[in-house]
Structures are given as C-alpha cells and as structure tokens.
Amino acid sequence: MTSTVSMTVNGKQVSAECEGRTLLVQYLREKLALTGTHVGCDTSQCGACVVHVDGISVKSCTMLAHQAEGCDVVTIEGLADGDTLHPMQEAFRENHALQCGFCTPGMVMSAIDMVNRHDTLDEKTVRHQLEGNLCRCTGYHNIVKAILAAHPVMKGTA
C-alpha cells in the first residue's frame, strides 16, 4: 500500500508516493535523487545516513519517510551556498578530514548538530559526541581537528 509523503527538503517542498516501509534515506536517495546521503550499515550504527529533521540530527536509515511527513529536512546537499561551503564543510576540507568521502556527509551533518548543541567543545567531548559516526579512513584525528576548528567559526567567535 502506498500513500503520498510530503516534506520540505533543503528548502524545497517535495512529495512522493511511499510504502509504509520506505525509509527516509530511501525517500531522499531514490525518490528525490539526493544521493549524497549514504547507507553504510543496517544496524543504525555507522552514521553515513545522518540528516537533520526539524533541526536535529537523525539516522535517516532508522526513520520511516512517513515519520518525516511535514518536517523540514536538511541533507548534505543543502549546506553550501553555491560554491561557498558551509563552515563545517570548509573545515573538513582545510583539515583533510575526509579521504574516501563515504562517511563524510553523515559526519558533517552530525558535526554541525554537535556544534549547534554545544557552546564550548573540547577534544574529549567531540570524540564522545562522534559515537554515532564511523570512519575507516582518517583515524578520526583530522575530523576532530576540523570540528574544533569549525566551532568558533559557526559560533561567530573566531
């Protein structure tokens, strides 16, 4: 049985026919062709699929498209302003916080949410807050550096 699911994605009103079981990540990738959000596991752990729903980070592989009905969704494709990267994207580039790029969209979305939730950040907090995102390439070293670098830029205290 299918029915229509509508939401706002990266500022645009969208609708698509979905089954009950259609996951938010499938909605984004298959219905909207927004393939920047990735699927890296099937046990809700790797975090490659993280997007923002109504301003908070969620794993879009563990949320039904129907549950996002009427919500405001932001994906990795919705961050940059043309050629101008979001400060977190820029910090990832500047600090070589990505290698193969597969975990990167989820990493960036989690990192932005982390900065939004923390007035201050230190290395230990960043590492703990990255619990839900796995990376196999970087050893996390430069990801942690990038988030610490982006924090003051996003907070306007740089």
Binding site: T35, G36, L79, F92, H96, L98, F102, T104
Partner: peptide, 21 residues
C-alpha cells in the same frame, strides 16, 4: 595542497556505485 576531490565529496556530489541508476 588541499584536495581537488573534496568539494564533490563535501557537497554530496560523490558518485559511488549505488548512485548509478
């Protein structure tokens, strides 16, 4: 040098196998 490929990966434009339709 900062990597040439990063813009694509950071903006969701990476083209992985599962993105081929």
């Amino acid at each position: 040098v900062k990597r040439k490929e990063d813009f694509r990966f950071l903006t969701g434009r990476g083209a992985y196998t599962d993105d081929e339709v």
